[in-house]
Each structure stands twice: as structure tokens, then as C-alpha cells.
Design a protein around this nucleic acid. Structure first.
Lengths: 158, 158
DNA sequence: CACGATAGACAACCTCATTGACCATATAGA
DNA sequence: TCTATATGGTCAATGAGGTTGTCTATCGTG
């Protein structure tokens, strides 16, 4: 039993969101200084969802939890920015495989490294044990595949 | 020192977001069953930002981190849904004070209670001590006023 | 070979934010 | 007191990003 009164329940979700944003904003800022200034927060997740092997717009939409059209538009944007390229699949003429370009891979590698650096900084600030407790707790309370990217829709949907 | 290898750095932000969504979705579902089915996730935060005393559109926009026009539109929507009402300020003819209606207050009270219930459930699942450690950690790592609601903009902005 | 399922593209629309311009009012300074 | 500036609110235009609906091309199976 703790002697202090429990904080109001609404603080926890706000802190969760704020912590998420803090990490993402920091990532965004650092990667902008490493040659990717036109990258947007969600793009990193899209790169992770595309993966090194490439995928298709439909499959990408499924992974991200959005429609295939929305995924297609995102791919189009990333193609214009030079992060992905589209090729045809010789085994299936319908599929157009989306692959990361060298620039896209560079970005993926850098973002993975920066995420690790950020985690290391948090570990230093909190202690590794404490940070693991947080991660374990979140894993228990919010299990499942965290790779759904439909947050914008979820946030604004009717 | 932990013997297990540290998880990849990108897991933590994803878990933070997923946990946030888990709480908000659950709140949304419960409050829909208590007579507020047309409420949207962000509205609860808007009510918190309006507060029992009322505020203005400009001030609301500042608190939420969005433009005054966006805040005004949100107020307009909530007014149509019957959650807020706009009155004039006798001391300043420019201001139009936004206040929660009875229905809005009901919603605010219920959402506060449900947030507390959800926190209690998490406390039971994790142990109060553990939950407090998470809250303390998040407070230290993501300090400041958590009441910025510009996530949609942040998520999609150029 | 025909039929259903799948991949992709195009169009129309919605929601929610933005910026810019404009008017009304309050406040401070000459 | 009168004027200049700041502030609150509204309207209009725009843009990003998502959705549904429809259409065509291709694959796989009975």
C-alpha cells in the first residue's frame, strides 16, 4: 500500500501519449540532422512495415491498418521523396512490389540506431531495471502487435 | 545489470502508443454504453481542457496546441452535439465563453470516473507499486504539461 | 474455360487541420 | 481624448490524409 494518494486516472494516458511524442519528435529531429529533413514521423513506421524485402500496397495497408488506397498514396509520396521504388513482380503481373531504395534503407538503419540511442538515454536516466519494468508492464497491459498505424484514422474517425 | 539483451529501441514508443490507444479505446467503449455514443476520443480531452469554469476558443486553442480556428470548429461540433454552449462575457464584448452543458459535465464526470476505474484495473494487474513506478518514470522522462492535443497535426504535418 | 478472388488505379467525398484576411472590441500612450 | 496596437472571433481557401465506390487486369481453381 502506498501512502500517497493515487494520481487521477486521466494522467496516465496523457503521459503515455506525451512520452510517445517525446521519443518520436526527438527521433525526427535527429534524423533530420543526418540528411533526412523531409521525413515525417509516420514514415519511419512505414519503412519498418515495408521491411528490407519489400511488399505491396495492399499488404502494406493491411499491416498498417489502413485502406489499400491510402497505402498507395503513402507509397506514392515516399516514391517522390526517393525513399521507395516500385517494380513489377515477374511471378505475378498484378503485383507491384514496393522496395526501399538505398536512401530508404539508410533511413531505416539510422532510425533503428537512433531509437536504440534514445532507449539507452532513457535507460541511463531511469536505470535499466526501471526501464525494463516499464516495458514489461506495457507489454502485459497492451499486448499484441504494436504495428498498427491507423492512429490518425482512429483519432479523427467519426 | 540485466542478463537479458535489451529489446530494440523502437519497441518502447510503439508500446507507449499502443497502451495509450488501449486506454482511450476502452474509455470510449464504456462511455458509449453510458449514454454518450457519439463522443469521440479527443472530446474527453477537450472537455478537460475546457474545464468546469469555461474558456474561450482562443484560449482553448492555446491549451490544445492548435489554431484558434480549429478550436472554434471543435467547439462548434460539440455545441451541435449538445455538450457545450457559448455565452457572451459581460466584461469583455469580444470574448465568447464556452461552457460545458449539463450533458457535458455529465460526460466529464463519467470519463473521469472511467479513467480512474481503468487505472484501478491496471493497478490490480500490475500492482500499485509497479504502476506508480511507470507513472513516475514517464513523468521524469516526458515532463511538462501533457495537455497538448495537437497530435493529429503533429502526426500529419509537413 | 469460365468464374470468383485479388492487385492496382482513378474519382469523388469527408474530416480536420492550416494560413490569410477581415471586423469588433479593449487597452495603452501621445 | 483620440489614436495605434493587440486581441477575440469569423469567414474563405487550401492541403493532407483518410474513406468508399467503381473499374480493369490478372491469377487460381473447379
Amino acid at each position: 500500500m502506498s501512502s500517497e494518494p493515487a494520481p487521477p486516472g486521466f494522467e496516465l494516458p496523457l503521459r503515455l501519449l506525451l512520452a510517445f511524442r517525446t521519443i518520436i519528435d526527438e527521433l525526427h529531429e535527429r534524423i533530420a540532422h543526418e540528411g533526412h529533413p523531409d521525413l515525417r514521423p509516420m514514415h519511419g513506421f512505414v519503412f519498418q512495415a515495408i521491411g528490407p524485402q519489400g511488399t505491396t500496397a495492399v499488404e502494406l495497408g493491411r499491416r498498417l491498418g489502413v485502406s489499400k488506397q491510402a497505402a498507395g498514396k503513402t507509397v506514392e509520396n515516399l516514391e517522390q521523396l526517393g525513399y521507395v521504388e516500385r517494380g513489377s513482380d515477374p511471378a505475378d503481373a498484378r503485383r507491384k512490389v514496393v522496395r526501399l531504395t538505398d536512401r530508404g534503407v539508410d533511413c531505416l538503419v539510422r532510425s533503428a540506431r537512433i531509437f536504440d540511442e534514445l532507449r539507452a538515454e532513457w535507460s541511463e536516466a531511469l536505470g535499466e531495471e526501471q526501464l525494463r519494468r516499464i516495458e514489461d508492464g506495457l507489454r502485459r497491459l497492451a499486448p499484441g502487435d504494436p504495428f498498427r498505424l491507423d492512429t490518425p484514422r482512429w483519432f479523427g474517425a467519426p
